[in-house]
Computed example of a mutant assay.
Amino acid sequence: MADVVEAVPVSLGALELLEPLRAALDGTGPAVLPVPFGQVAAPFPLEGWERGAALVITTSGSTGEPKSVLLSAPALRASATATHDRLGGPGRWLLALPATHIAGVQVLVRSLVAGHEPAVLDLAPGFRADAFADAAGPLLASPGRHYTALVPTQLARLLAEDVEVLRGFDGVLLGGAATPPTLLAAARDAGVRVVTTYGMSETAGGCVYDGVPLDGVRVRLSQGGLPAGRIELAGPTLALGYRGQRFADGWFRTGDLGRLGDDGVLEVLGRADDVIITGGENVPPALVERVISALPGVREVCVVGLPDAEWGQVVAAAVVPAGPPPSAEDVRSAVRTGVGRAAVPKRVVFVPELPTRGPGKVDRTAVARSFG
């Protein structure tokens, strides 16, 4: 049981965290808090149930104040083991994400559980396809199964510049942000074994793969004002709680909306806070984005609600073209047919890229500000 949390400054090479994390998992060292290299954070004590923590991850605070998520060693191991079981067995991992985020930390945990030191992509110069290939080469030449985890922007770049290296992996976990259906289809058509993941720091990272919960993970939906509900998660990967706030009933109520198909597969519809209320109608941006991203000439899209005196909010779409873009009217027509009249964007702009935060997540607040 850990009595204290110690901050571990983590460079973009990330291996400084490996040994402290190993000690925290086996109980021979204190709980660890990964922080960006150069950041100073004083140790802080754990009290009562908090002493079960092995890892503390600070949330981004994008929807409020940042929170310290306390994860136990059993939860981290359960996540790693269930991931390996789903992918076909333990293997060797390439870390291509920051280890100050749960997705990056879990690559290290899976490596420790599998008994192999991970390969690490140095992200200091930014993500580059050639550097990814260089880091992957020795790993893919080693025996056994090979895995990595990416965000959609990384996948898109690798598909454009070096898809061959991706084909060498037995599994490519994809999370951190919504994946455009066209990107996912292109990757799979190219022979890349992509597995989409849904989860967060509070669930030790991804806990639903390709819409299906990992072994032991439970999913339910609370009722909402849409033909969907708030996603709630439980199971062995769940965090103990936030610092000073225990998850007492065994369930974590996410901020995301979802719906379950007849086959039990979960479809994530985006954050409940992002739902646009226009003229009294509720419009989930994810449904609009799905339709627009399927249009020829669209690489990425972000749909937001803008304040409006008449409608309350209006739907607005920022589109990143891939070659000749569709016209604004083509965008509106597709949404009208695919989602409904209330969801039609009243404003459509074409931009060279979308602003991001954290590990590849689109910054919706910055997108909304860009409309002026």
Rank of each mutant, 00 (worst) to 15 (best):
H146Q: 13
T182A: 15
L306P: 05
A272C: 12
T197E: 12
D134R: 15
V301P: 00
G264V: 05
L18C: 03
V339I: 11
A114V: 09
R157F: 04
E19I: 13
D262Y: 12
V212Q: 14
V319I: 13
A185P: 06
T100P: 05
F371H: 05
G176L: 13
F371G: 06
R157Q: 15
P90S: 03
Y209A: 05
A317V: 08
P152N: 08
R299V: 03
P138L: 10
G88I: 10
S333T: 06
P352V: 08
T182D: 05
T337I: 07
K361D: 06
T278S: 10
G211D: 12
A129E: 07
L95N: 14
A14C: 15
G126L: 15
G206E: 01
L295Y: 05
G255N: 11
H146N: 11
A272T: 14
G224C: 14
V172F: 04
V217W: 00
G264N: 09
A239V: 02
P74W: 02
P74M: 02
D249E: 13
L158Q: 04
A23K: 15
V298I: 03
L221S: 06
E19P: 13
V163I: 02
V344N: 01
A318G: 05
P355E: 10
A14G: 07
L240K: 00
P143C: 07
I231H: 01
A53S: 08
D134P: 03
V315A: 04
D363A: 12
V208H: 11
L139E: 07
S293V: 07
R357Y: 14
R86I: 03
R336S: 01
W311E: 07
A309T: 13
G241E: 01
Q313N: 11
V120E: 01
V105A: 09
A272H: 14
V303C: 09
I276N: 02
A342T: 10
L18Q: 07
P345M: 00
Q39M: 11
G206L: 10
G199S: 11
R77Y: 00
C207V: 15
G48Y: 06
G305N: 01
A135V: 05
L70C: 02
Y198T: 03
A322T: 01
A75H: 00
R271Y: 03
D189E: 15
